Simulated assay, not measured.
Amino acid sequence: MSRTSRLLDLLELLQSSGTRTVPELAQRFGIDERTARRDIEALRDLGVPVEAIRGRYGGYRVSAGYRMPPLVFDDAEAIAVLVALTQAATRTATVQLSSGLATAMAKIRRSLPERLAERAATLLDTAVISPGPHADPAPAVDPDVVLTVAAAVRDRRPIALAYRNRSGESSHRSLQPHDLVAYSGRWYLAGLDAATQQVRTFRLDRVTSAHVLGGTFPAPPPHDAVADLTERLVTAGYRHEVVLRIRATVGDVRRDLPASVARLEPLDPDWLRATIHSESLEWLPGALLALGAEVVVEQPDELRTVLQEAADRLSSWSRSPS
C-alpha cells in the first residue's frame, strides 16, 4: 500500500471509529509506531484537525464535525470515470470488488446532470459486460466514442468510424452496429461492414472518431454477442497459426488459454488439439509452461525455435554462479 493510500485509509478510520491508540494504528496498517505517529503529523500538515487525547483511554481522533470535502467532477470527467469503471468491471476477480464497482457506477450515474444521465443510461443498458481473461493494461478509449457507439447500437443507426488497425494503418468504415461489448478490459464494436457485407469486430481504443449516419437498419438475428466476439477473436487473421496437441482437460487448458485465445478440439479422452492465431510467438513459452501439461507442437516450426531459445535462457539462469 502506498503512503498516500494509507493516509486516506487512516483518515477514514479516524473519522468513522473514534479514538485510536498508536499501537492500534500500527497493527491495523502493518507499520511501526514511529511511522504511525509520522502519519498522524502528515494529516495535520494537510490541515486535518487530529486531536491527541491524553489519559488511560487516550489516543488520536479527528475533531467532531470535520469531513473531507466531496470530490467534484466536471461532466467530461464523470463520463470518463463511468466508462473506465465499466471497463474495469470486465477484469474483476472477486465478488466484493465487482460489488464495489457496481455501487460506484450507480453513484456516478445518479450524480450526472440530466443532459448526460440519458447518455450514461444508454451505455449501461446497451453494453454487454463480460469478464474475460487477464489482459495487458487496459488501453485508453475516448469516452465520447463509447457513448456515440452505444447510442447507435440502441437506435439501430448506421455509424461511420475513423479506424486505425494493429499495424497503425488508418481507414474509414461505415457499418450497422450490432453489439457493444466490454470484454477482458477492452471495448469492442461488432457490426455489419458496409463495404464487405460481413460482420466485423473493431476495438474502440483504435477508433479515432465516430459519428452517427442517417437512417436505420433492421435488428440483427438473435445471437450471443460474447460467444460471437470470442469466436472472431480466436479466428482473426494474425501472422501465425499455431497448432498444438495438449494432454489435459478442457478445464485445465481454459485457465491459461481462454476461448478468445485458443480453439480446442478433443482428439481422444486424454488429448486436445489447440489452434491459436497470434501476431507474436514470444508469449507462448510462458503460457504453455503455465499449463503444466505435455504439449506437442504441430506447427509452426518458428514456435519450436522460440521454445528452444526460451529453454536455453531458463537453463542458463539455473546454473550456479561461477
Rank of each mutant, 00 (worst) to 15 (best):
L175P: 01
R156P: 00
Q197P: 00
P139S: 01
A195P: 00
L123H: 04
L161I: 05
E169N: 13
A127M: 03
A219C: 07
P131C: 06
Y183E: 03
S130E: 14
A152N: 07
L147H: 03
H223G: 13
T126A: 05
P137L: 08
A162I: 04
P220S: 00
A210R: 02
A140V: 12
A210C: 02
A127Q: 03
L213R: 14
G185T: 11
I159T: 05
V181Q: 09
H223Y: 04
S174I: 06
L175Q: 07
T122K: 06
V153P: 02
F217T: 06
S167F: 13
G132K: 07
L175D: 06
A138N: 08
Y183F: 15
A135S: 15
D125I: 00
P139A: 02
G215T: 06
P218Y: 01
S184K: 10
S174Y: 00
L161D: 03
V181A: 12
A138R: 15
G214F: 07
P218M: 05
S209H: 03
R173W: 06
T126G: 03
A150S: 13
A162V: 10
V141T: 11
Y183C: 07
A194C: 01
H172D: 14
R156E: 07
L123I: 01
A135W: 09
V207I: 14
Q198C: 01
D142I: 03
T126E: 06
V207G: 04
S130C: 10
I159Y: 08
G168F: 04
Q197K: 07
P143I: 00
T196G: 08
S184F: 12
R166Q: 14
A219M: 05
S167H: 15
F202I: 11
Y188S: 06
D224S: 12
L213K: 09
T126W: 04
L123S: 02
Y163E: 11
D193E: 05
A194M: 01
A160L: 13
R154D: 13
R154N: 10
F202K: 02
E169F: 12
P220R: 00
T122N: 08
S171Q: 15
S184W: 10
R173L: 15
T148Y: 08
P221Y: 01
D179Q: 08
R156K: 08
A135K: 09
S170C: 10
Y183I: 04
S130G: 02
I129C: 05
L147T: 13
A151P: 00
R164L: 13
D193A: 09
A190Q: 09
P177V: 04
V145S: 09
R200V: 07
Q176K: 10
D144S: 07
G214E: 14
H172T: 15
L180Y: 11
A162F: 02
Q197I: 00
W187Y: 15
P218D: 13
V145H: 11
V141M: 01
Q198H: 04
P133R: 14
A138T: 13
H134V: 13
L180A: 08
T196E: 11
P131K: 06
P177R: 09
S174D: 12
R166T: 14
Y163M: 13
S170V: 15
H223S: 14
P218E: 05
V212R: 13
Q197T: 04
H223T: 10
H211E: 01
A152M: 08
H172R: 15
L161Y: 04
A195G: 03
D125K: 08
T122M: 09
Y163R: 12
S130M: 04
L124F: 09
A151R: 15
G214W: 06
A225H: 01
T208L: 05
P133V: 08
L192E: 07
A210G: 02
V153W: 10
